[in-house]
Write a protein that binds this DNA or RNA. Sequence first.
DNA 1: CTGGTTGCAAAACCTTTGCAAAGTC
DNA 2: GACTTTGCAAAGGTTTTGCAACCAG
Lengths: 151, 151
Amino acid sequence: MEDLEDVLRARGHRVSAARRLVLMALFAADRPVTAEEIASGLQGQVPRSDLTSIYRNLELLEQQGLAYHLHLGHGPRHYRLVEVDEPCYVVCERCERVDSVPSSDLDAIRAAIDDRVGYHASFRHFPLVGVCRACMATSSGRAWGIREGRS
Amino acid sequence: MEDLEDVLRARGHRVSAARRLVLMALFAADRPVTAEEIASGLQGQVPRSDLTSIYRNLELLEQQGLAYHLHLGHGPRHYRLVEVDEPCYVVCERCERVDSVPSSDLDAIRAAIDDRVGYHASFRHFPLVGVCRACMATSSGRAWGIREGRS
DNA sequence: CTGGTTGCAAAACCTTTGCAAAGTC
DNA sequence: GACTTTGCAAAGGTTTTGCAACCAG
């Protein structure tokens, strides 16, 4: 956290209270969080704050490669700090469950995609979507979910 | 096209001019299109029409399993008719290029995901995102793109 | 002090909803 | 004729922009 503040300062950005708060929130969260969740204080984990500033600071953190956002279905973006071993998120399109797997678990899959499709795939911006084991066993037919708000 | 109209009628829906127009547009398009593109007539391929009706009709077609939408990055949804051999879309995160591959090309990949992650993956709602061969060769470092409008 | 940042208000963008008028079966 | 569907207007939810006041370095 101090480290990230130093990175920002070293690159000519200032570390204001609002900016520090966004960093705190991202550190405190154990999962990707929305700007709105940060603004409302992550259930008391950090002070409430202004949504606009949060968006602006998240944008800065993304530009600086310190954070990124992804889309877990429709609804607002979810943000996370960038880390060395980034997990890959997996969403069940039936029950909406969100799992995460170590990115390295997907190396073989990325290699296969490289091979078959000619793209070096990343599952960072859009997660892997599918039907989880539980839903596979339970539900019968029917397809598409991805409810929740806007996209 | 007539077939789809019959399906709708058989299920108790009416086939109005506006509804037919959405079907025409989806047939005319050789790629996933946005509601806005349909509304503005797909460059003269179909008559211009009202955006609200288009959204309502696209929703109906999705409910009826005749069409679906997907997200090619940020910006508005893209809609397509459902077909037997649905292609899978692949987006380059560097140059924004959109390719499509036969869904069957991904069978091995889906099997690997089933195996490693325990999900039966689908690349329908969110396309596969990665770096294409051309960009792999050209650009050096740098990550994330997915520009264009809202999500 | 200087200029990056904030917070509020307002706009922008995509999608949905309300409702009277029009159209389908 | 009964009941869907339309088209317009307006609202909704998320993200961005304008701008004066504020604050970090």
